[in-house]
């Protein structure tokens, strides 16, 4: 079954690449990027399928048991749809890839030329390189663990919160909200991932389907859906658990700026005492939105206001203006 799906996917990507992408890359004289263009094609086609699958599953669920009925295609939700499309179809990853490529490759090249080689956990633990299951489980857990801490610091560090507030400013949360992220926050996430890769090695690439499932789970956790996964909530992040994290007055104010920071597994929150399994579905957003503060509505406005807030926060940090307390 999985082999058949993978075979269809390969045929589809190959057809798109051979028919449209490869001739274009050749005509533009960019053959040095031909392998990368193939990967980008696979990312795009995979993204289209992932968005289609996520919509087909999450939309009926949101209709079936919505937390907030009748809010399916408002202007704010349309903004999130835009965020999802530019993220999952590769436009934002293209931006972060380009930034990282030009930033990091010369540094890495210089370091290697002078004898530095990154640590590879496989050297110490060869089973990682030869046992697919162990390797997959290890990287999924480590990446989820590092994402938990990145997310905690997004809430804890003032200037970082001002960027992350773009994500939290959605008051009509749906499964599309997962990708509503500031561009700079995305870039920081990519740098974070590069640092993790340098520390523990790169995650294996032989499990794209598993990583697609994880992305789907992240979207589902943002769904406008009354569901707590029953006993599985102790293992996985449910829509209720993550809604509490987005809840005004709950998810990003108390216990030193929040609860329920996990991305895929809820075990880290339980382990580090940030889990809140309350059986509620609070209203989402940021407290001062209730007083009329504007965090933006369209893509460009949310981005621009994010930059402004970042500048104000950094200004405060450097001891200049703005004593405005930060809302969370």
């Amino acid at each position: 079954m999985l082999d058949t799906l993978e075979s269809w996917f390969t045929e589809l990507v190959s057809w798109v690449h051979a028919t449209l992408v490869s001739p274009a890359v050749y005509s533009l004289g960019l053959m040095s990027w031909s392998e990368w263009a193939y990967d980008a094609t696979a990312f795009f086609v995979g993204g289209v399928l992932l968005v289609a699958f996520t919509t087909l599953v999450c939309l009926p669920l949101e209709q079936w048991r919505p937390v907030e009925p009748g809010r399916t295609l408002t202007a704010d939700v349309r903004t999130d749809i835009g965020y999802t499309l530019i993220t999952k179809l590769g436009i934002l990853p293209l931006f972060t890839f380009a930034a990282l490529y030009w930033l990091l490759r010369p540094v890495e090249g210089w370091a290697r030329l002078h004898g530095f080689a990154p640590f590879s956990l496989e050297d110490a633990w060869p089973a990682l390189a030869t046992t697919p299951g162990v390797s997959l489980l290890f990287y999924v857990l480590v990446l989820d663990f590092t994402e938990y801490w990145r997310h905690r610091w997004q809430h804890r560090i003032e200037w970082w919160w001002q960027l992350h507030a773009v994500h939290h400013s959605q008051q009509q949360m749906t499964f599309w909200t997962d990708d509503r992220v500031h561009l700079l926050d995305d870039l920081i996430a990519a740098l974070w991932m590069a640092a993790v890769a340098l520390t523990i090695g790169m995650p294996p690439e032989q499990f794209p389907l598993v990583f697609a499932v994880l992305r789907f789970m992240e979207s589902l956790s943002h769904a406008n859906l009354r569901w707590n996964f029953g006993p599985l909530k102790r293992l996985l992040i449910s829509p209720q658990f993550h809604r509490v994290h987005h809840g005004i007055g709950v998810g990003h104010e108390g216990r030193r700026y929040g609860v329920n920071f996990g991305v895929t597994f809820s075990v880290w929150d339980q382990l580090f005492r940030t889990a809140d399994f309350r059986d509620e579905y609070p209203a989402t957003g940021i407290r001062d939105q209730l007083d009329g503060r504007n965090y933006g509505h369209g893509f460009w406005e949310t981005q621009w206001l994010g930059f402004i807030r970042l500048a104000q926060s950094l200004g405060t940090l450097l001891g200049r203006s703005s004593s405005r307390p930060s809302a969370r």
Partner: peptide, 23 residues
């Protein structure tokens, strides 16, 4: 793309084993 090796029996032209080899 997968970080694996496929071993193909040259006589039968069938993949007999696929295993991870590195990144």
């Amino acid at each position: 793309g997968d970080g694996t090796v496929s071993l193909i029996d040259r006589a039968t032209r069938k993949v007999v084993k696929t295993f991870p080899v590195g990144k």
